[in-house]
């Protein structure tokens, strides 16, 4: 512990600027309004972020990242990979000031074993939540009914009763026929969402 020298994480507080979001997108299927589109099926992932008393937490800065439809994730190490979808950035951040989040994206592919992921993974979206009163909270969500969930190493690391808390449920399509998945993220309560220690050292 004596050798730790890193800057400590602190709460974002309530006054982060929405203007900092710039062109960071809540819609990952729309590449700067060009006509090109990423491969894969468009979906909407939505939910609420709820506190101890079931009240919406607001504001929350939500950052999300995921693989493309082939299960490939864009990182500095994969930028030149031929099977990386050039029209899918896979990184989203948005500022939720009503306690709900909604991301328009493509259904992430199951991840084959590769340099960035040594084991196969079920389709997932990583979420980081920043809100007043706590440091960053990190978790991952999965899609109800996907057979790959049965062998995903992260889901399997959870006691069985906790696993459904990370599954987004399929809801009726929206009025444009886009599949909608919903998951509520619950804080400090009996059926609290599992969060993960992303300290790597």
């Amino acid at each position: 512990m004596e050798t730790e020298n890193y800057t400590c994480e602190d709460t974002v507080g309530p006054y982060y600027a929405p203007a900092f979001l710039d062109d960071d997108r809540q819609n990952l299927t729309n590449f700067y309004d060009y006509l090109v589109r990423p491969k894969g099926d468009v979906i909407i992932v939505q939910g609420a972020i709820l506190d101890r008393d079931g009240n919406p937490v607001k504001p929350v800065l939500v950052e999300a990242w995921q693989a493309d439809a082939n299960g490939r994730r864009r990182t500095s190490a994969t930028l030149e990979d031929a099977d990386l979808d050039p029209w899918f950035d896979g990184y989203s951040r948005h500022y939720c000031d009503d306690g709900t989040f909604e991301l328009t994206t493509i259904m992430p592919g199951a991840v084959p074993p590769c340099r960035e992921s040594p084991s196969a993974r079920a389709p997932y979206i990583t979420l980081n939540l920043y809100m007043d009163g706590t440091e960053r909270l990190a978790t991952q969500i999965f899609f109800e009914g996907r057979p790959e969930n049965e062998s995903d190493p992260l889901l399997l690391s959870l006691p069985e009763p906790l696993r459904p808390r990370l599954l987004a449920r399929r809801m009726p399509d929206n009025s444009d026929g886009v599949p909608v998945y919903r998951i509520d993220l619950k804080l400090r309560c009996a059926d609290e969402t599992p969060f993960f220690e992303d300290r790597f050292g």
Binding site: E116, S117, G133, L137, L154
Partner: peptide
Amino acid sequence: LSAEARVPLRSLRPIPEAARTSFAPS
């Protein structure tokens, strides 16, 4: 007061080695 209503009750769970990189942003 904010923390009292939000900070998770349970400990942060360890991430299996196989899922580590997926938690790093890019």
